[in-house]
Amino acid sequence: MYRRHTFEERLLIISRLICGESLEAICREGKLDKKMVRQWLLRYEKYGDEGLRGTRPYHYSAVEKLSIVMEVEEKGIPLQEICL
């Protein structure tokens, strides 16, 4: 079952990663998805604390979706990076 994590929980997990604890150990201990925690880390590195506060759902127009696909294909930018 999916569990929503508070800002404080996310910040604590990211702090542990920054202090050198392994991603695998933290995820195993907290029964967390590695991809989710990596995404938190990327958002933290790019936006600081605000990156961990969560996001609101956003619906992309057809033009925006096409632009994203073109960036991925032409520039080779990973989709995860574009999403940030």
Rank of each mutant, 00 (worst) to 15 (best):
E29I: 08
G76N: 07
I77W: 05
Y47V: 03
L42F: 12
L84H: 06
I26C: 02
I18W: 07
I26A: 02
W40D: 00
L42P: 05
Y2I: 06
E74M: 12
L23Y: 01
Y58I: 11
L11Q: 02
E29A: 10
E29W: 07
E71S: 10
R4H: 07
V72Y: 13
L23Q: 03
M1Y: 09
E21M: 09
L52Y: 00
Y2N: 09
R16F: 04
I26T: 04
E71Q: 14
E81R: 14
K31E: 10
H5I: 00
V63N: 13
L52E: 00
I13K: 03
A62F: 08
E64R: 07
G54W: 01
I13S: 02
C83E: 11
P57G: 15
V63L: 14
L41N: 06
G30F: 10
D49G: 04
R43Q: 10
G76S: 09
P78E: 05
G76Y: 12
F7L: 05
R16T: 05
E71F: 10
E81L: 13
E50W: 01
R43I: 00
M70W: 10
H5D: 00
L32I: 02
G51Y: 00
P78I: 02
Q80V: 15
V37W: 04
S67F: 12
R16P: 05
R38Q: 13
Y60W: 08
H59Q: 11
I13C: 11
L42I: 11
R4C: 05
I13N: 06
R56I: 07
I13H: 04
R38M: 06
I14V: 15
E24V: 03
D33A: 05
E9G: 00
E81N: 15
L66H: 12
L17Q: 03
